[in-house]
Amino acid sequence: MGIEFPKVRVNSLINAQTRNWDVDLLQALFKPEEVQLIRGISLGDVSARDKMIWPHTQSGTYTEEICDHCKSHSEDIVHALWLCPCLNEVWEADTGWSFRNTVRWDDFQKLILHVEEVGLDLDLFAMIIWLLWHRRNQIKVGNSATSLGQIVACARQQLQDYNLVQPMKPATESANLHTAVTWSPPRAPFLKINYNGAVFQDSNSAGLGAVILDSVGGVLASLAENIPLPQTVADMEAAAVRRAIMLATDLNLSSIVLKGDSEIITRAIQAEEQSLASYGNLIEEIRLHVDSFLNFRITHVKRKRNSVTHRLARHVSDLVVWMEEVPSHILPVLLTEAG
């Protein structure tokens, strides 16, 4: 190709016109697994200055602690609650968690999504995780802690105790609670944009989804895009925000309220300081776009209030934009969410 490998710089690997990775050049210079990792690094449309980043925490803030279980490994949340060999007796007590030995997760949110998507008991998983974290904190302050061999039994018992004391709700009250979490219109002059992302481990890709609604629930536009799998869920959510913001910019919208279920990305956009996370370049680009709006707000919503964009993100395709509609199979979800 006329390029000597030692002289290749990162900007040589990026197509200057499309601002995407030059896949042909990557495939010529790197191994397939390396190409996949590089393509998972999200690029923005705005050139960013080189800077040091810390990719080992979602916030980009450097921290380093030794795991309290094994005393031999730098602690991160995945190791402390899932991968540490000292936890084998916890996670091997039930064959449902056997995928722990075959699938490696570098991001805890991906692990939670997998537990939910394969239909495992998410409540039990959460209770076990809470007990492990509580045990870790008790050890840190020198208090006695539950033995690892009792964690699963304690989790099942506490979950049972919790469910037993929950009051039975009448059907009418349940209906009112359902209505309370449905769609709420934005106040004029704002338009509401919801965004989301979805992981496809089997194809090493991710989906992005966005929908723009007016004050009466009418759809102005919706979007779905399939991209190479980013390195973390937070990177994927940042890419989804960027795509939603670009859609709003292309439609010349002036006042928007942006909503998504990633609290990490919401905080990163709202923060005044520079983000040193792996998705920091996308945050900088998003902030530049935000300055072009007359009015802008961003808020965090629970995942159950973001189901339309979750379905859009799972619409496997290249970039597709629908004007004044959503795909037909998503319309029932939109109508249900709108109450």
Rank of each mutant, 00 (worst) to 15 (best):
D235H: 02
N15R: 08
E65V: 13
H300Q: 13
H69P: 14
F30W: 04
N226Y: 11
L37H: 12
A48G: 14
P6H: 07
I269T: 01
V152S: 11
F125N: 06
D106A: 12
C84D: 07
L312R: 09
T63V: 14
R19W: 07
G149T: 13
I139W: 10
E4C: 03
E324N: 11
L251E: 00
F296K: 08
L253W: 05
N196K: 05
E92P: 05
M236I: 09
A175P: 00
H289T: 03
P189H: 01
H178V: 13
K7V: 10
R9N: 14
Q158G: 02
L288S: 13
A221V: 02
I128V: 01
D235N: 06
C154Q: 10
A48I: 12
H178A: 10
L13Y: 01
A206K: 01
C154I: 08
I3E: 09
V165I: 13
M236L: 09
R104I: 15
E75F: 01
V216K: 05
R297C: 12
V35R: 02
P32C: 00
P6A: 07
S74M: 15
V241E: 07
L258T: 02
A210Y: 05
Q160N: 12
V216L: 02
F293Q: 12
V211F: 02
E273Y: 03
A248F: 00
V90E: 03
S59L: 00
F125K: 00
V165Q: 00
L132V: 11
L282C: 04
N306Q: 01
